[in-house]
Design a protein around this nucleic acid. Structure first.
Lengths: 201, 201
DNA sequence: GCTTATACATACATAACTGAATGTATATTT
DNA sequence: AAATATACATTCAGTTATGTATGTATAAGC
């Protein structure tokens, strides 16, 4: 078989990632073999080993295809809202993505129920952890700024409140993934968020 | 090698479950082989296949050893508290167990980060789901009862509030498992719980 | 005290996944 | 237009997990 053009090669790479995503979602990561992925993408294992170092590398690439855009998204410096409203907007956008973008929801479900975090995937877990810390710090900043601006004192230290807020959202996403017919994630998420904020004052 | 007495057989079974628990926790479920478990327990795979049907069966037994006692625990009809205080007590007790009982924390971490929920483990996922639904219903009942007794109306429908409460707790546990040095689970859990309740009034 | 089921240990057959090595036709480069 | 690197396909060697079948010494049952 011939050498492919650069475009074709990139297309192959995408097909491989798509196939991995589907099969990981259906069967779990560890029960999915590189051969299955290759076949589903219409190639052979040779193609996988050309584009990726091994299964863990392929998994990482699949994750980053979704998480990198999500992390850089959400910021909109044009509309200068109050800090908490900005946070709320980002939150709503994220929740909407989880429920409406099938790729996002699939990858989230893979990350939370279809993979085992062992040594060779430590990188993913570390990224998850720093992402959480960033989210918490952002919450915390917004809470501090709002409290100062409005001259009120919160019933919890901002750090703790930020932690709980993150847990609330993360827990809702997890629950929604477990049974996505049960409730409307965006609506309940925003209601929960606002109710907790009311309790803080 | 001889046949063992019933006591010895039961001890073997426990050692197998202990070994599985440790190895699952260290390496993840799918990368842990039955041979490793048997060796760590000082026996052979024959013993595993005698006591359990296969790896999934062993995993289920390992889970139930911790989850069954937890589900039946917590109830204390002697002290008749207000419904919400009863809920709070159960919550504190559960969080305390997660942080202080190493077996509970290990099994929780296995269940949330070290196993892939595919078809053959559907039973575990289903149990998880019904456990969640039970917890939500309990929250909901308590909220309704309290609202009626005190004649106040909540800012969210009880069903939604219960969902959010559960997500808050589940999210906190998940966050704590991810990095258990970061915060005091029992303390933050109770603070978050109470703050959200304040927001509901 | 004899029988039998028990609680494993051992051995085997099979299937399968991985990583690396090698082959190759053709885009690309110069 | 020749040389080279690319984008895979193919093959192979090696390892290893699983399920099952079978062996066996003894605790239990009668």
């Amino acid at each position: 078989m011939p050498r492919r053009t650069k475009q074709e090669a990139l297309a192959t790479r995408h097909r491989l990632l798509d196939s991995a995503e589907m099969l990981f979602h259906q069967q779990g990561v560890s029960k999915t073999t590189l051969q299955q992925i290759a076949e589903h993408a219409g190639t052979t294992r040779g193609a996988i080993y050309w584009h990726f170092k091994d299964k863990a590398d392929l998994f990482n690439a699949m994750m980053e295809r979704v998480t990198l855009p999500m992390e850089s998204a959400g910021r909109d410096p044009g509309a200068n809202l109050a800090p908490l409203e900005e946070v709320e907007r980002g939150l709503a956008e994220a929740l909407r993505l989880v429920t409406e973008d099938p790729q996002v929801s699939r990858v989230f479900e893979i990350a939370s129920h279809k993979v085992e975090y062992t040594e060779e995937l430590r990188a993913v877990r570390d990224r998850h952890l720093t992402a959480r810390n960033n989210a918490c710090m952002e919450f915390e900043q917004a809470l501090r700024a709002t409290a100062e601006r409005e001259g009120l004192r919160l019933s919890l230290p901002p750090e703790t409140a930020a932690l709980v807020l993150h847990a609330l959202v993360a827990g809702l996403i997890q629950d929604w993934l477990l049974d996505n017919r049960k409730f409307n994630l965006v609506k309940v998420g925003l209601q929960g968020f606002r109710t907790f904020l009311r309790g803080l004052r």
